[in-house]
Every structure is written in structure tokens, then in C-alpha cells.
Design a protein around this nucleic acid. Structure first.
Lengths: 356, 356
DNA sequence: AATTAGCACTCTCGTTGCGAGAGTGCTAAT
DNA sequence: ATTAGCACTCTCGCAACGAGAGTGCTAATT
């Protein structure tokens, strides 16, 4: 370990203070540390060390005669240098895996479950965005007449995503014609990405051309930077934390999760640039986000780079169990990555089987 | 109007107190009423009348020397007997209609928009369940090979609902076989409801039988009493209300919207028995729901009776603008009903056009 | 030189007391 | 039946105060 400017003892004390404060939400007094852990020190020594840590900027006291609490910088140092990365305990891992295996194999069920698991494990709020398929390719199109001029367009992508759109034609068209059109388009577009679909030349058939345009729009919509679907859970957990008993802070925290534009700008500035599997920790506002001033977030991307990715994370008070939450987020992200890879992998296999 | 045991003046005073308290969230004093509205009365007379209303149980005072606030009973009387039903002002109606017309014609977009509109208009939290199609009939089935043993099943109902399910077969099957199977099943099941599908005899083909079983399951899932999808919005608005500045009350209120089982039991005991277009008002816990003790809800069903229905509503503090919220909920419910009818109407027309 | 015991000092927090103000309830007059 | 007038009650904000918690500093100890 590099010389970080702190003695081992100072690191120990900082760690213990973070640990105790995380547990009790009360400023930690020198005597308190002594009674909880049997250190070979006197309270006076601890006080001296604490004074140094205050000087450095890792601790502060709410008022003159109170114990110490970590500053945001203190937490950052703790998370970056002191905390040992642990893996999630085996029983927890098994329990989570089991819940996933018991779920219907549909994306939105998985997202919901992931959000629920994260909320429970972290005792905070959770946040999951559905996997965003970049460069997903056209797989199949179906046109179904519902009544009169109204038809349903169902577009299936190679990723297994299904997009549907209801549309009203200028005049009624028979189901047979629709099916024929759908088949034609399917033949033309199979395995094309948006670019490919855009490049298809006009078919001299108004209906076909119209539908192809709509397919393109639909494909375009589904390849934005941030998925339309954001799953949340555990908002109540956040309100339960003592730091959010004042409604002002509570509102600030919930705003992050409720207001889409806010959340999207946050995600795009942080986790969207990071690699799959890397867990990002945002401690306090970091100077950028007013709304996060009382909160921390632990975020990670999951999926396959350049193909299909989403974001998972938890939000809680700055005084959160970083170690535990990082492990949980990493584990859940890993599970979701596996799911994405399983469903997305090797689309060419399909053709192999078709050739049989 | 029947003799309700109250003099006209008492009704007036009760109305004004409800109105003022709704506006200011402060106990209403006799002098305050005089200064706000120019009544031909003295404060002493008002005090006498207020004393009577306290006796009856429609008002109470937080403490001896405070103004009066309505009791739950008082609100109920106000909503049931005193409040005049107004329609939503024209500009508001037009604005809402316009927002709907600008939205992509997809169910979930509409639900989201409805929730957003209700949250904004009521300045409270809103709640929308997707339309639940009862007796919806089979329309079309598609089976698409994704890779190897994994296939995607897409089921379209006459209502325009699309259900999808990924499944893994025991062994890989060629896309052509899948398409043939899908066609067979579509032919067998078209326009059948669950009973009809259940009644279909075995086809002596393991794959076909398997898929039919899954179709049945999928149809079964989608015809439960309460839809899987619940849209919420405006949770933050609730926290902004002064009565929820204490986190205890705020948590209670949010629990109703966050905890599925709670919400479902609430809905099933109230709005599910009511008719389309009728707006239900739940004021306070009504003795049944501890969590609602500080809140009121305004709920309505929308859709077509016996065919496809959903629920819309708002949640706010007991001190809410009932008149306004009832109008808003009724209007939005009406809009959604129209949408349901438009998309659901006359499925037999489809065949008519097919015969052309 | 580092650690510690001892103690004075500071600040919070809960309690108490008090006065002003708001609003009522009652009584007596209209 | 209504109202003016007034005494009464209760809240709220403020100040004072003492107990307790925890520190910082100094001087003694290892």
C-alpha cells in the first residue's frame, strides 16, 4: 500500500468511526470507540488522532462538544483506500440466484426482481434500467389487422426485444395483404440494423414503404442512450433513514429517482462512460449535483459492451454500508450481464439450425 | 334537497371552513371567516354555529383556543351533500385532450400520461392501472427462433394486447417448423377465449400441444383481477404537503402506493365493485385502512364493463380539493374509456374486411 | 517522544417559567 | 335570535438554567 500520509493507527480509527457512524447514525466519541472495541489506547490518544483527521479533512464535528462524523472526503478515502472488497456471503448469493431462477424469463420481470433485490439488500432505494440494445438487428415483422383501418405492428429484434405499435391506415387493408407485406418486409430486412433498413430502396408499393418507415422509426426509438424503462424500488426504505426525517432532504433524495431528466443527466455523466463490471460510487453531491448532497449512489453497468447494456444501482444516505452495497450491486450486475449474454449470444446460430 | 338536519347557514359555514382549511391548512377562526367573506353575521353567531357543528361531529378544534378544522365526517358530508359537482374548465380539458392526442398510440404511453396529468392537476400522487382485458380472445400467435433451443412466443389478443414469452425447448427446432406450428395454432385458436383454448383437444404433436399449453397460461395470467402494471406519478407532490412533513405520515402515505398487496386489497375492496364512470371518494381510513388515516383517495374505473377495465385515481392529504380532483379523475377516466372503446370495439369488423 | 490522567471548558438538549396573542365560550344587552 | 363585551384557556416563542456529554489542553508518566 502506498504511503497515503496517514499512519496505520489513523486509518484504523477512521475506519472504525465510519463503521460506527454507519451503524448508529450518531457522532462517534472517543470513549465510545474504546468501549466498543478494546483498543490498546487511551481516549486522549484517540482524541489527538481524531484532531489530526479533522485537520486533514476526513472528519468533522457537528459542534464543539460532539463526537466526530466522517466528511464526504472521509468517506471517499475510506471507500477508495481502506475498505476491503468482500464478496457477498454465499447464502445471500444463493438466495438471489434462486429468486432469479424462479422468475418468468422475461426482461421486465427480471428488471423488477433486480430492483426489488437491491432495495432489500441495501435497505435503500434501487434503480435499474432495462438493457438498451445498440445495433440490434431486425428479426421479424408481423402485421395484424385489428378492425377496419387499425392494425397492430409487431417488430421482433434479434435480441429478443419485441416492439409493438398500433397504427391507423388511410383505408382498410385485408389481413392477407398485410401478411404478405409483412413477409416481404421481413425478407428484405432480416438481420439489418437501422442503417441497413434505411438503405432499403423504395418498393414501389405505398403500403410497404410506409411500414418500412415505421419500422425504422421504431428501431430508432429503441436505440437511444437511455432506455425508456426505469425500474425503481424501495423508495420507502430511504424515508426510513434518520437523515431523511426532515421532509426537505427526503424530497431532494426522491427527486433524483422521480425526475427523469435529472436522473438521465446524472447517469449520462457517470456510469455511461464506465466499463461493464466496474462499480462506481458517488458520494454526496461531488460538487455537481445539488440533489445528491445528502445521498450516495452505487452504480454499475451490466450487459455486453457495444451491444446491450443497462444500469443498476442503489441510492441511500451518505452514511451507507458501502462495502456491502458495492458487493450487492456488482453481483446483481453480474447476474443481469449473464442474462443479457444468454439471450443475446450468437444470433447466427439461428441460421445454422434453419439450415438443417 | 332533503332535510339533513342542518340549517342553510350551518351548511354555508361548514362549506366555507372546508374551503378555507383546504386552502390554508390552518384551523379556521370565526374572525377569519368574517374578514375573508363578507357575511351578514357577527363572529359570535359564527362561533355559536361552529359549536353546534362540533357537537354534531363535523368539526373539531385541535385545542381549546384554536379555530376549527373539519373532521373526516365533516368532509364526507361536504363531499356527499354540499359540494357542487363542477366540470373541469374548458382550457384544462382541452390541454389534457391535446396531450393525449400528441402521444404515441400505445397503452403504456397513455397510462404514463394519465398518471402524469393526474399528478399535476391534483398536486398529489396519482395511480393508474392498465386496462385489464377480461374475456379477451386469441388473435394471432407467432413463434420465432432466436438461437438454438431458445424461441420467442408472441401472442396477440383481439384487444390489441401483445404478450411475449421467451422459452427454451428441449431441442432445437427449425424456424419453418415453428412457423407451421404457429399457423396451425392460430387457425385452431382464433377468436377463442381461455375456455375455448382449454377445450382444444390434443393434436398428437408434442410441440403443438406444449405451445398451446403455454398460450393458455399466458392468457390466464393476463386476465387476473388486477393488472400487472401499475403506473404512479407525483409521489413528490405528496411529500410537499405540510401534513406529510413528518416522515411518519409520509411513509404511511407512500406505503399505500408502493406496497402492491396493500394497494391491491384496497382496490379490490373499493373501486372494483363500482360501475364505470362512478367516482369513489375514500376519506381517511374509513375504519378499514390504517395507512390511509392521513389521506384521501379519489378513484374511478374506466373502460368497458365486462370487457376491459382499469382504475385511475389520485391520493392526497384529507385536506384536498375534492371537487377539482373528482372532476379531473372523472375526465381522465372518460378519456381512457374512449381509448379502450376505440381500440376494442367490434372485433368482428375485422372479418368483414377480410372477406372483401 | 509518545502516551495518558485529569480537569476546565463548551455546547446541546430538555425543562421550566413567563408573557403575548389568538380564539373561544359565556353572559348580558339589543 | 343576534351581538357586544369580556374573562378564560391554550399555544407559541423566548429566555434562563442545569445536567450531561465530549472535547482540548496541560502536566505527569512511561
Amino acid at each position: 500500500m502506498p504511503n497515503t500520509g496517514l499512519t496505520t493507527r489513523q486509518k484504523l480509527i477512521l475506519s472504525l468511526i465510519v463503521k460506527e457512524f454507519t451503524r448508529t447514525a450518531q457522532p462517534v466519541a472517543s470513549n465510545h470507540l474504546l468501549s466498543e472495541y478494546n483498543l490498546d489506547l487511551s481516549s486522549a490518544t484517540i482524541r489527538n488522532e481524531m484532531a489530526v483527521l479533522v485537520e486533514i479533512g476526513y472528519l468533522r464535528q457537528p459542534h464543539t462538544s460532539a463526537g466526530r462524523i466522517p466528511t464526504e472526503e472521509g468517506y471517499r478515502f475510506f471507500v477508495g483506500q481502506l475498505m476491503q472488497q468482500t464478496e457477498l456471503p454465499e447464502p445471500t448469493r444463493r438466495s438471489i440466484t434462486e429468486q432469479f431462477s424462479l422468475t418468468r424469463p422475461e426482461t421486465d420481470e427480471w428488471m423488477r426482481l433486480a430492483a426489488s433485490v437491491l432495495a432489500n439488500e441495501s435497505q435503500g432505494a434501487s434503480l435499474v434500467t432495462a438493457p438498451q440494445h445498440i445495433n440490434a438487428q431486425f428479426k421479424h415483422l408481423e402485421l395484424i389487422s385489428l378492425r377496419g383501418r387499425q392494425i397492430l405492428m409487431v417488430l421482433v429484434m434479434t435480441s429478443g426485444e419485441v416492439h409493438q405499435q398500433m397504427l391507423t391506415l388511410a383505408e382498410p387493408v385485408a389481413q392477407e395483404t398485410l401478411s404478405a407485406t409483412a413477409n416481404t418486409i421481413t425478407r428484405l430486412c432480416t438481420n439489418q440494423d437501422i442503417k441497413g433498413v434505411t438503405a432499403i430502396s423504395s418498393q414501389n408499393d405505398a403500403l410497404t414503404d410506409d411500414i418500412i418507415r415505421m419500422v425504422k422509426d421504431l428501431m430508432h426509438q429503441s436505440t437511444g442512450e437511455i432506455s425508456a424503462d426505469i425500474y425503481r424500488d424501495g423508495l420507502l426504505n430511504v424515508l426510513t433513514q434518520p437523515e431523511f426525517s426532515e421532509s426537505k432532504h427526503a424530497r431532494q433524495a426522491l427527486r433524483i429517482l422521480e425526475e427523469r431528466p435529472l436522473l438521465e443527466s446524472l447517469l449520462s455523466q457517470t456510469v455511461l462512460n464506465s466499463d461493464i463490471g466496474v462499480v462506481q460510487v458517488i458520494i454526496g453531491g461531488e460538487g455537481n449535483w445539488e440533489e445528491l448532497s445528502e445521498c450516495s449512489m452505487v452504480l454499475a453497468r451490466y450487459g455486453m459492451n457495444g451491444t446491450a447494456t443497462g444500469t443498476v444501482g442503489v441510492l441511500g444516505p451518505i452514511r451507507m454500508r458501502y462495502g456491502r452495497n458495492i458487493s450487492t450491486v456488482r453481483f446483481v450486475a453480474g447476474l443481469l450481464s449473464e442474462i443479457v449474454m444468454e439471450t443475446h449470444n450468437l444470433p447466427q446460430n439461428v441460421e445454422k439450425f434453419e439450415d438443417e
